[in-house]
Amino acid sequence: MLYLSGVFLAFFLSFLLVTKRNKNTADYILAMWLFVIGLNLAGHYLLLTKQYTQYPSLTFLGFTLPVIYGPFLYIYVRKQTSPRPFSWKYFLHFIPFLLCNFLFVSFYGAPFDRRVEIFKQHGSGFETEMLLRLYLIYISGIVYVIFSFWTLYQFRKNMVQQFSNTEKINFNWLLYLIIWIALIWGLVLFVDTNIIYGAVAVFIVWLGYFGIKQVQVFNQPALAVVAHQIKTDVVIEIQKEELASDEKKYQKSGLTENSIADIHMRLLHLLTDEKPFVNPNLTLNELADMLKVHPNYLSQVINSKEGKNFYELINEKRIEEFLRKISQPESKQYTLLSIAFECGFNSKTSFNRNFKKYTGVTPSEYQKN
């Protein structure tokens, strides 16, 4: 029943993705991945219930499908963290899967009775091919989990250099997804096959629950959030491209000490006089545009002169503004959170975390003292 539930839910979630409104490439990738997982679980179910005698090729295909779990995970993470259009180069990641099935061309081409007999003899005559298949599964899982972690790490690392609020774009959903696949691959290396497929079925249940109830992967998210995420992805990608194209120029010309001091002085005056940090969606690009400097130069100035990244600097200024406001008598009629929102924070969690980092105490403890 667990496997059947996993099969049904995988196909159902795949259907939800392809029928939801405003689909993007990442949705199609996840839908195809879920469909593959459903086929994989169905193949294992046929094997356990001895129904491979009716569907030997479908059951055997299930043995090779885990090879593409890793590529699907990696491509999905890439598409969620980058605005680049889908490229044919992504299909290169599926070559190991094709090679794996090529090893068993003689099986697929054998008469029906012969295929059934091979199953009954536990793959007799294909021992070497089955061993190579197993190695491909191991290598694919480990390599692509590492690639996926690295891709997400680079994305999240770059966010604090570009954005002053990251609560809605931290992509914890992708992190949990990668961790789940990493755990399943840990089971692949050490435990029985039935336990592995049981974990895959539980993963599908989690995917359905978490996706629908918490991050709205399968139903239509708020348009404002979608627009914000798209804008986030595009700006990050543009920044990476600008940095790469200007790298030689940056290294040759660089910033003189006088230039650094001038930009830093103008930055401090801007933060003090105009308080751009009260905009909760302030980005490095926008701040650089106000100062008429290249974003890469501004980032260098912030890092070298302030010893912080863009995110830390802006949120520190927000905390300073918050402390200034609550020291005024007229602020007594407002809640701490409403004042925090006026200062540029967009969530209670972000405010509490940055406040404690800056003052060493929570807002409520500060208020009591």
Rank of each mutant, 00 (worst) to 15 (best):
R115P: 00
L131K: 05
A201T: 08
W206H: 11
I139V: 13
L270Q: 14
V7S: 01
F63T: 01
G62Q: 00
V18Q: 07
L287A: 11
L2A: 09
E320V: 04
S164C: 11
L270A: 08
L136Q: 00
K89Q: 04
L47R: 10
T256Q: 04
I319H: 06
V278E: 01
G141S: 09
K356R: 13
S259A: 11
A224E: 15
W185S: 07
I319A: 05
F97V: 00
L287Q: 07
N285C: 03
Q300Y: 14
K248S: 03
S14W: 01
S82W: 06
V36W: 05
S259R: 15
P111M: 03
C343S: 10
D233T: 10
N354S: 15
A10E: 13
K305G: 08
V116H: 09
H264T: 10
K357A: 14
S82I: 05
F63I: 01
T166L: 08
H294T: 09
M290T: 09
D233N: 12
Q239C: 02
G38C: 02
A182S: 15
Y90V: 07
T64Q: 03
S164Q: 08
G208P: 05
L337W: 08
L282G: 11
V234R: 14
E129F: 01
V235Y: 07
W180T: 14
V116M: 05
L177R: 05
Y209E: 06
Q333V: 07
A110Q: 01
Y297T: 09
W33C: 08
F35W: 13
R84K: 14
S140K: 02
L271R: 07
S57I: 07
T193W: 05
W173C: 11
L284R: 07
V217Q: 08
I238L: 13
T349W: 04
T335Y: 06
L61R: 04
M32Y: 06
I181A: 14
I339H: 11
E237D: 13
L134E: 08
K357R: 15
I204V: 15
D273I: 10
V202H: 03
P280H: 05
I319F: 06
I139T: 11
S57N: 05
K325T: 11
P295G: 09
T49E: 05
L223D: 12
S14G: 15
P295E: 12
P363Y: 02
K20W: 03
E167V: 04
K249V: 10
F126R: 00
E274C: 11
I263K: 10
Q80C: 11
C100T: 02
N285I: 08
N346K: 14
I142Y: 01
F147I: 04
